[in-house]
Design a protein around this nucleic acid. Sequence first.
RNA 1: GCACCCGUAGCUCAGCUGGAUAGAGCGUUUCCCUCCGAAGGAAAAGGCCGUUGGUUCGACUCCAAUCGGGUGCGCCA
Length: 584
Amino acid sequence: MMLMHDQIRLELTTWLLPSLKELGAQVEERQIYNGFASTPDSKMGHLAFALFPFAKELKLNPAALAKSLSDKLQSSQAKPAFVEKAQNVGPYLNFTYSPGHLAQLIIPQVMDQSFFKRKISQDMPRTMIEYSQPNTHKEMHVGHMRNLCLGDALIRLHRYCNFDIVASTFPGDVGTHVAKCLWYFKNHNTETPPKERKGAWLGRLYTLAHNKLEDEKGTPQEDVNRKELTEILAQLEKKAGPFFDLWLETRQWSIDLMKEVYAWAGVEFDVWFWESEVDSDSVKLAREWQKKGLFIEDQGAVGADLKDYGLGFCLLIKSDGNGLYATKDVELARRKFQEKGIEKSLYIVDLRQSHHFKQVFKILELMGFKHAKDCFHLAYDFVELPDGAMSSRKGNIVALQALIDNMVEKIKTDYLNRYQGEWSTDEIESTAQDVARGAIKYGMTRIDPLKKIVFDMTEWLKLDGESGPYLQYTYARIQSMKRKIQMSVQADYLTLTTPQEMELIRLLPQFNTVVAQACEQYRPNVLTSFLFDVARAFNSFYSECPVASAPSGQKEARLELALSAAQVIKEGLALLGIPVPQKM
RNA sequence: GCACCCGUAGCUCAGCUGGAUAGAGCGUUUCCCUCCGAAGGAAAAGGCCGUUGGUUCGACUCCAAUCGGGUGCGCCA
């Protein structure tokens, strides 16, 4: 359960509760706590409390109730220090903050990190988040990156909110795509494998294989090809023969590629499930339930008839005796709960699989699996190119490693090479890498998961406006201030009075609430837009409020405000897996 | 045919469990580095929130219908 952790709302709640009760309302703390909303304009106050629901209960005019409440509050002694005034405006009670007092409350907590350690929730179910299901023998592209960034961000968000999270991945290392790739490798390839990035090279062979097979459809060669592929699949099935050996070797190349990508992205999995490992057990499980009568035979194949539930027919065992993706997912779900001791299971897979997961979860339910209700598919829309969908079969993909190289190069030539001589080559390189991480991860998480992303390379290389580098730049700017400005006396927070200071102070304490919301809604973009607001507020403050030249006391307060903004940005970006450079 | 997702400014997107005058970024047009980092800031222009009904004191938000786009629906994963 999510807790009421926002100190500002809590203090206001405590203040309002007695007065509302005196007025006859049957209210609980949480109702009030959840009743605060932002005002349309800071001139009207900084936080609003709408009286509609209480007026309805008391059968009063909301505006009149707001007036009575406001009157009662004037005589109340418990007014929080950060409230400058509470004013009834129509049906609302609007609170205007005193920026200095709010700063006094918030800045020390942010500076000593205690703000980020508040308990946001308790008793949350042990949850497995499965994400990143790349195929071996194919190249990884920007589409995979969306899944990776989304999954990683959700894991970090959940952990921040006290969830016990098990991160898992389920790569596809068996199936016809593998056979096609190996077939081409052995029978048609003339190139020698490169020394580095073999996984990417192998992925390109897959595309060549696919195209060759397509081209030869309808020719006498088609039959030959099919027989060769069947033989390869048979060897993989038996786990013996030259193709099995080749599979072992090339599979590792793909795994190396995945691991390189994961290392670059700072992603770590607690559990790796392999399709090849659940394959045979999954078929056995399906056979058992066929005997129990849950799955039926039809046209030589076996599956679950889900027509009563509007889910059609879910095929589980092909007429050749092999299982399918759904078969594996049924067995995998069993393993997750029974072997890993989880209480909730989240699957991050693109929305094309929605139907698949509905079928799988229904089958689990029909099998009497008590955790069927604890399985959730988080569907996200995929990444498209300006000229349409990406497909490794067609080969029109933006390869991940190429994208990263491209971006790093661009960052160096456009920005960082100007520091040559001043910074070491390593510093330039690692900063460029971090900025590229920022650009890609922010770009992938800033869009609502349910909306598609059109990947336009030139747009992504711009790095201005609402982007990861904008936030990183803001952070680096503040670090630079920190290096240059000395603090000599105690900060006098009450000197913080400008609208820019107010706006920034008002935003910072919302961090935990925003993170909780992003987590609950599985939408990291809630966090990205908040961080962007903070950075924008800071940059506005920066241009309007001189720090170094401010009188002592105010100088310290402003610097601490800036440093607090930097802390929030850093913590927030960390939840998106984005590093912050000290300079850039 | 059925199901799911999306439809807000020229483009890309925000808009919290319904609430006060719908907001950003990019692009366009102007300004701002004798001052802590211009990957920055300030300002202007740009909207019948796909359409039509309904629920409500109140709808971009909820419901229904409809149009447009996308994706799925038995031997791929």
